[in-house]
């Protein structure tokens, strides 16, 4: 991708964003519209990002860094960069399948069944959480139940109830920034209405014409001790040219 084209794309994107950003001033969008806009912000056809995961355990914090290549929602490839013990560990997600490669054993293992329910690297996220890549609009019915000011940002509060029956969470409550269409807070509820998990999204920046929260703090609300898991994107690029072979099991061993 040459520099000039990149700029053009940027300009175009910015123009679009402005249009959207101005919209709320004119009319209150429906809940579905809001969700659609959120989905558009958060999902992309193609992205490469480096991230840091800080796991605040009861016994101190750990930081892991990784680089991820993703195309669409179905294919992603993550390589851990640090700490030394995890360096070179790679994860490949293809459709519904997940493989992990460890350089010390030179083995590629498929993670399936109950293993998917285990935590990723000791975080408050499970592999399953990572795997569910369906868009919110596909899986939840939304209603706007109010508006709130959150960290000096105006938000709509949306209540999402499952419309398919194989979801981990029956209902969600999300606080969506009225200007940038980014959820600033998400709460995950059990069928009984008990709060299970909370995610706080922050450091919202604009990249390639889309708003993106660079930091997400996850916390299991039933568990005590530890301050959750912080997920920080240190670098993200959209529309990169990602070669196809990266999404193959052979690439894990390289």
């Amino acid at each position: 991708m040459n520099y000039y084209r990149h700029i053009t794309v940027m300009k175009f994107a910015i123009a679009i964003i402005f249009t959207f950003a101005l919209m709320p001033l004119h009319a209150q969008p429906t809940a579905d519209q809001i969700l659609e806009r959120v989905d558009r912000n958060l999902s992309s056809d193609n992205r490469v990002f480096e991230s840091t995961m800080i796991i605040h355990g009861a016994r101190g914090s750990r930081t892991l860094t990784s680089r991820t290549y993703a195309v669409g929602e179905k294919r992603s490839f993550t390589e851990y960069l640090s700490p030394p013990r995890e360096e070179g560990t790679k994860m490949l997600k293809l459709e519904e399948q997940l493989w992990i490669y460890s350089p010390s054993t030179d083995r590629t293992i498929q993670i399936s069944g109950h293993m998917l329910r285990q935590s990723v690297m000791g975080s408050d996220l499970s592999y399953e959480d990572m795997m569910d890549d369906r868009k919110l609009t596909e899986t939840y019915d939304a209603t706007v139940i109010g508006s709130e000011v959150l960290d000096e940002r105006n938000t709509w509060v949306l209540e999402l109830t499952a419309k398919v029956d194989d979801l981990a969470y029956e209902s969600l409550k999300i606080w969506v920034d009225t200007e940038r269409y980014i959820p600033l807070k998400e709460e995950f509820y059990a069928k009984s209405g008990k709060l299970l998990k909370r995610a706080v999204l922050s450091d919202v920046v604009q990249i390639d014409g889309r708003w993106f929260p660079k930091t997400i703090l996850y916390k299991d609300m039933l568990k005590q001790g530890g301050d959750g898991t912080e997920f920080k994107i240190t670098d993200i690029r959209f529309n990169e040219n990602i070669p196809d072979y990266i999404f193959s099991k052979a690439a894990l061993k390289q």
Binding site: R62, S102, S104, T105, I109, Q118, M121, G122
Partner: peptide
């Protein structure tokens, strides 16, 4: 064979 387990820090661990 490979043992798949969890490290003290919660990471997945593989060991031959």
């Amino acid at each position: 064979f490979t043992l798949i387990s969890t490290t003290m820090h919660g990471s997945m661990s593989l060991y031959n």
